[in-house]
């Protein structure tokens, strides 16, 4: 691994000792009906840092993500952005604060309004949170499209004219339009073809490098987060069973379930015995 990678890893473990971060989850609890979805989950993310939350379906990782961005209200616990409790905010104040906390969703087609041209989708946060006039917004949209590897003339098309990877680029352009401090990515590549996944991961890593946002990366796949995460939290049954520096999770997992997860990643070097000999 590169030197920069190593340095980030070191910084991450330092941050863990810190009392708070840019975004902090404190004792989050959410119950649906009688089924507890998230029980007492706490972690913090610093600026420029990526925390991966890994777990399988029903682990509570998506519920946690939705509480972080305020799509769900926790039953107990707090989400602190720069020390401010988001749950205390309502209406206009909450909407204004959302500009600092943006989300990229799993389903890149579903997360774009099919009836809206992509330029208008990307411009919407600019319209809501900045004083830019129409011409300035158009310029900014063109710049954002270039930044995510698309062309300015793509702004006039509808989402269905794009491939899955391109749609995810559009969704990312919308999410970073107002320069968020934290980006929550909920399985951003699991709906994409393998050949495209690495493109999107590279894009996200490059943007983080350039703008320094903190990132919470939700995934079911330990292999996918291997190269983007500074720290990894493993969730199961609504609990954070292990949280540590990425390297340690792979090389020296403490929890039995983490070991199972690491073992379940398919190996490209595994081979099946020949059927003719058997």
């Amino acid at each position: 691994m590169s030197g920069a990678e190593q340095a980030r890893g070191g910084g991450a473990s330092g941050q863990e000792q810190r009392a708070g971060g840019l975004l902090e989850a404190r004792g989050l609890v959410k119950t649906f009906g009688r089924r507890p979805a998230v029980r007492d989950v706490s972690f913090a993310v610093g600026a420029g840092e990526t925390l991966a939350i890994v777990g399988e379906s029903g682990s509570g990782k998506s519920t946690t993500a939705r509480m972080l961005v305020g799509l769900l209200r926790p039953d107990r616990g707090q989400v602190l952005l720069d020390g401010d409790d988001l749950a205390r905010l309502r209406g206009r104040a909450l909407r204004a604060r959302r500009k600092d906390l943006q989300m990229v969703f799993q389903d890149p087609l579903g997360s774009l309004n099919p009836a809206t041209r992509v330029g208008a989708s990307i411009a919407e946060p600019l319209l809501l949170h900045t004083g830019l006039d129409a011409a300035a917004r158009r310029d900014r949209v063109a710049e954002l499209l270039r930044q995510v590897g698309l062309r300015p003339e793509h702004a006039d098309r509808l989402p269905r004219a794009f491939s899955g990877g391109q749609r995810q680029r559009i969704a990312i352009a919308r999410a970073i339009a107002c320069g968020p401090r934290v980006l929550i990515c909920d399985e951003p590549v699991s709906a994409l073809d393998v050949s495209t996944q690495a493109q999107i991961l590279d894009l996200l890593a490059g943007l983080r490098e350039a703008t320094g946002f903190g990132c919470v990366f939700i995934s079911h796949d330990l292999a996918v987060v291997r190269l983007v995460a500074d720290r990894i939290g493993v969730m199961r049954g609504g609990e954070l069973v292990e949280l540590g520096p990425a390297e340690q999770i792979y090389t020296d997992p403490r929890h039995k379930y983490t070991r199972e997860l690491v073992a379940a990643v398919p190996s490209l070097t595994a081979r099946r015995g020949s059927h003719e000999r058997s």
Binding site: L101, F105, Q106, S111, N113
Partner: peptide, 14 residues
């Protein structure tokens, strides 16, 4: 229930 409505909420739409 569509994701783009959730995306609109997180964008900060009223």
């Amino acid at each position: 229930g569509q994701t783009y409505i959730q995306a609109a909420i997180t964008t900060g739409c009223s």
